[in-house]
Amino acid sequence: MSELHTVNKSPYEKNSFDSCIGYAQAGSAVLLFEDGVYAAMSGGATEAKVKAAEGVKFYALGPDMKARGLSVDRVIEGVEIVDYAGFVDLAAEHSKVVSWV
């Protein structure tokens, strides 16, 4: 059954993102929100990790990116931007949600 993993902490401050990546299996999804959206930005230390996670689909919450001044055209290739409704849809589509806090 596919899982939705969520990360709401900065990848540079806590290891929530790294742990999540370690557990996310192919076919599952990772949603980045709150300070977790910093992991979606290209050019940083997380880019290689996102690209290496084969078969894992990444999403980032648009309103949290906008609040932090992060431009949509700077996200890592393949990361999809969703709004709050998209967040809800993702949670509903997956059999369970695992939060990395």
Partner: peptide, 23 residues
């Protein structure tokens, strides 16, 4: 320093998250 640099990133807009934009 560290994530503190994010405090002064330009273009912050909290209109959709219901928090005060103090930038």
């Amino acid at each position: 320093v560290d994530d503190g640099v994010y405090q002064i990133v330009k273009g912050q807009d909290t209109g959709e998250v219901d928090m005060k934009n103090f930038s």
